[in-house]
Design a protein around this nucleic acid. Structure first.
Lengths: 137, 137
DNA sequence: ACTAATTCTATAAAATTAGTAGAGTTTAAG
DNA sequence: CTTAAACTCTACTAATTTTATAGAATTAGT
């Protein structure tokens, strides 16, 4: 399941994606349009900025705008940024790999192989969902 | 990501699946073989019992054994039993459906449709992983 | 200078997860 | 019928994570 943070991030990105090119949206606008607590959204937008998904303009008449193209922002990206690994266990993860503390031999682990299969399929599916594809539907 | 509970459940089921037919395994055996805290495993085995995945025999020389066939226990089943919905949001879930409190119109929700696509693909993949398939590899 | 916005750090409340404790119940064997 | 060995059940606790909130600092336009 997605955290609220990830869900709010997606909703914010969808909002930004629907604005005119070069339009800058204030946090409060996004928050109200997408029903997201404003102070919480501030943090989320900063995270998105640090991930180079959005850009910002400070000061009066400042706000946020999409930095990457709608086609380049995938569900997998947002999941990883806010909720971490896509794999079901860290030992089966590409980006968040960690060995299991209770695992005697990773190569002989019966679970890991199956979880890597799931990871590959889920990842592929998640990379197929972009902000652009969501807006179009 | 899977919770420890779900991971331990899978490891316990894998252990049971590797025993001889009609063999009964004590909790302590499973716990030691799979490096699972015994008291925690007790709860997990009870959950698996209530889900009719395993059966138990009480009293001296009691223990647990697989109730369902190895082919009939899927990763999707165990995920749902211990970690709930496979969908990324409750509004996109088949078995754990709940409307979003911050959603004005579900039918117009841009997110939901994409998340249902992911759910279908993930579910299909997870239903393809069975205890039997994990043991075989 | 003033205003309106982002940025940053700290804090807090709530929920979830992971694990422990201990009493109770059931069964087999002597 | 007593004892031992196992599952069963309920309650509790500690740690972590999640979901925010508060408020000061910074930036930029007029």
């Amino acid at each position: 399941m997605l955290s609220h943070k990830a869900k709010y991030a997606l909703k914010a990105l969808l909002f930004l994606a629907q604005q005119d090119e070069n339009h800058i949206s204030r946090t409060i606008e996004i928050a109200e349009a997408a029903s997201i607590p404003k102070k919480f959204l501030e943090q989320i937008l900063l995270d998105l900025k640090r991930g180079y998904f959005v850009g910002s303009k400070q000061g009066k008449f400042g706000g946020y705008y999409l930095l990457k193209s709608k086609n380049e922002i995938t569900l997998a990206d947002i999941h990883r940024l806010f909720d971490g690994a896509i794999a079901l266990l860290p030992c089966a993860s590409l980006n968040f790999y960690e060995p299991c503390s209770d695992c005697t031999s990773e190569s002989e682990c019966l679970l890991r192989h199956g979880l890597m299969t799931i990871r590959d399929e889920t990842l592929k599916a998640m990379q197929g969902i972009t902000i652009a594809s969501l807006v179009k539907k």
